[in-house]
Design a protein around this nucleic acid. Sequence first.
DNA 1: TCAAAAGTGTTATCTGTACACCCATGT
DNA 2: ACATGGGTGTACAGATAACACTTTTGA
Lengths: 283, 283
Amino acid sequence: MTQRYKIYLLCTNDTKNFLYISHMNKKTIPDEALFDTDPFMPGLSVDCVTIGFEDNKLKVLVLKWKTLGGLWTLPGGFVFKNEDLNEAAIRVLKERTGIKLPFLEQFHTFGAVNRRDPNEIDGFIKNLESFGIEGELMNWFSQRFVSAGYVSLIDIQKCNLKTDVFSAEIKWASLEELPDLILDHNHIVKTALDYIKNLLQYLPVGITLLPEKFTMKELQYLYEAILQKKLDRGNFQRKMLKLDIFNRHEKMMEGKANKAPYLYSIDKERYEKLLANGYGFSS
Amino acid sequence: MTQRYKIYLLCTNDTKNFLYISHMNKKTIPDEALFDTDPFMPGLSVDCVTIGFEDNKLKVLVLKWKTLGGLWTLPGGFVFKNEDLNEAAIRVLKERTGIKLPFLEQFHTFGAVNRRDPNEIDGFIKNLESFGIEGELMNWFSQRFVSAGYVSLIDIQKCNLKTDVFSAEIKWASLEELPDLILDHNHIVKTALDYIKNLLQYLPVGITLLPEKFTMKELQYLYEAILQKKLDRGNFQRKMLKLDIFNRHEKMMEGKANKAPYLYSIDKERYEKLLANGYGFSS
DNA sequence: TCAAAAGTGTTATCTGTACACCCATGT
DNA sequence: ACATGGGTGTACAGATAACACTTTTGA
């Protein structure tokens, strides 16, 4: 029943969740840091499309590997055998951003055999070799993975980004300058954006992307970024306010040469209620 | 890399896809019918929520196991290592209904650790034992599975139902009399129905459930079944016709004591076009 | 001829859309 | 004072909702 592939993990202080692939000879890794792949579901992973909003642009959280090529990936991870799929995604998100699920939703599972472009495999294998990965450990990494995709919408300001042990860098990449990602990760991002775009048609999701207090204009820019189209200012304002999920605050007075706009925040309770209902087919 | 669990498969004439669990002693199974679990992805399955429409009711395709308890399940199967997840679902659907994907869509992946109710496990294991399953084969079946759920909407008339080797019976069960299903299959059905209901808000999906030619009233009943609410006849008719995806035919004259309604069929081309577009956020 | 259900009409109301007007604010 | 952009008003087009009227059909 259990897998027999040995794999080398380093227990860091705050997590046992990340594989540690060392440039060091494995003899230099302390004994208590050695584990095998038993705790993980074979062939199963989660990938998180973590969306933020900054400078009126949508951004996606990406990691750069500690490899020669410096390939980019989505944050992701394996799933413990005693862990719900959702929990795995929540864990990954928590570890990269320090935030626990403001909005986290499974949108699609990617299960094509050729998620990994055949042309890409050689480079991938070479990269793993450069980390000192070999034998059964190599088998683990080069096996076929089916990956569940999760989207979350996050307030960038609240994040405390951390790389994982594979990666040298973690950053918010705007959609225009999204780097080439490994495997089908670019496709995963596109699918996630379509999902959110569709969701926004009938649910005011995405408000979680904004800081605590925001102006209607900022909210409008967010909608425009997700929907990829211009909206009418006046109509947007009315439409949003009619949802009756906002609290209006005192004015902002920042040094702009115009009338100071109101600040709004979300009334959590009414917002949740609205999310639960959605819209209906008319007549 | 490869799994080592032996499993016993019988190659039937038309498929190698189904595990055959024999009451016979395994010595009576011909040698060429013996395989191990190597061809399958461990811990991964697909489940199909196959929806039809008959007597103005939505129906779901279910199978009854050849076990003592006669437990019911959704049609489902394992995924070959060299097979796309989608392909696995298409294959399962094809084998049960004889139909190749009129509409087949992955809607959610079920990955809770306790998909299998702990109280249920004992009975499940006993059932497997009653089939003569033991040892590593038992391990295969009692391992944790993550399952990708697929919905399809099918014209019942076109189906040619076949049981699989596990099952004694296959039938269309109306939602009101849907039996208790194993694992979280009842939950899977509910999730699929919610998904379709949501989809119908902005796409005229589900028309594929009806036979080639149908009346507007029949279409309305279908909508009412999916949306779980009454619709206004006149308004519904206008709304549908305005979609401009139907061809009107000569009348039906069946012996009803009323004005004979028109028959309509779908104009495939315009229908596909509409599906591709959907609706947009207004303003 | 009559009940049933199709097809179509009518109307008030609501929503979407476009754009205008006035007001507050920092330069 | 004035350019900028917020807040709100208005008016038209189209969609929605409720229901009425007429027509066709088999019994």
